[in-house]
């Protein structure tokens, strides 16, 4: 039932002849194959292996490479997130949890904690695309392996407070300092949307009992040039230091 229409190519049958011609073509085909493998064997320049940890200096990921979610902070150490929770709604697997608070000075909703669970994130980029203020970014930092899954819960913001636009309007540094307070690495339980993770009696926002294994100190929102978020698990921090 070979339908022969135009714009079709039909598979050629395998040609077979007598004993000796088969032997000759067979041997020839084998030798040709050996020629190809030898071609690569004899040319070390064709080797494509990347010696991964050794080539860190030259290894460059593409700009759009999607790994670690980050909330870039500008040169003053402030971000643009308004805690609108659109990213939270866009996330298909509830990996983002926005904890907001009433601003002490402004009395408006502002970001307290931006909690991102890398352990359930699929790096689908939906949050980044959905963000109306373009304040999220998937960074190319892919070396995120840790031994403890709980270290994969990140708090992406370094401070609780309003956006940089609001903060920069206030010219007096004293006044400005009242509007935000530093936030550190988050290490408590994270409820999934609609349901709580069993075993965690603590609520978000309440002060967490600091775990021995979890990193304690957090960088204060000093003028940082690195766009990466502060919330870096200890193991990752060390890895990064070696680079």
């Amino acid at each position: 039932m070979v339908v022969s229409e135009s714009n079709q190519v039909v598979a050629p049958p395998i040609q077979r002849g007598g004993f000796f011609s088969n032997l000759a073509t067979g041997l020839k085909s084998l030798l040709k194959g050996m020629g190809i493998t030898f071609h690569y064997f004899s040319r070390p320049s064709t080797v494509v292996t990347q010696q991964y940890p050794e080539n860190r200096a030259t290894l460059k990921m593409f700009d759009r490479y999607r790994m670690r979610l980050s909330l870039p902070h500008d040169e003053n150490g402030f971000h643009k997130c308004t805690a609108c929770t659109i990213c939270e709604q866009a996330c298909p697997n509830s990996s983002i949890r926005i904890v907001s608070r009433k601003g002490a000075v402004t009395n408006k909703t502002e970001l307290d904690r931006f909690i991102w669970r890398m352990d359930s994130c699929t790096f689908c980029n939906a949050c980044v695309v959905a963000c109306p203020f373009s304040c999220l970014k998937m960074s190319g930092d892919f070396e995120c392996s840790v031994y403890d899954k709980s270290l994969l819960v990140f708090n992406l913001t370094r401070y609780a407070g309003p956006t940089s636009t609001v903060l920069m309007k206030v010219t007096d540094p004293q006044e400005r300092a009242k509007m935000w307070e530093p936030r550190d690495v988050y290490s408590g339980p994270v409820p999934l949307r609609g349901t709580a993770v069993p075993g965690g009696g603590r609520t978000l926002g309440a002060p967490e009992p600091v775990k021995a294994s979890a990193p304690v100190a957090a960088p204060t929102p000093a003028p940082a040039t690195a766009p990466a978020a502060s919330a870096t698990a200890l193991a990752v921090e060390e890895e990064g230091g070696k680079k």
């Binding site: 759009r64 999607r66 790096f123 980029n125 939906a126």
Partner: peptide
């Protein structure tokens, strides 16, 4: 990857 940012699960 350069265009999309992912190699396997592209979305």
């Amino acid at each position: 990857e350069e265009t999309i940012g992912a190699r396997l699960t592209m979305n």
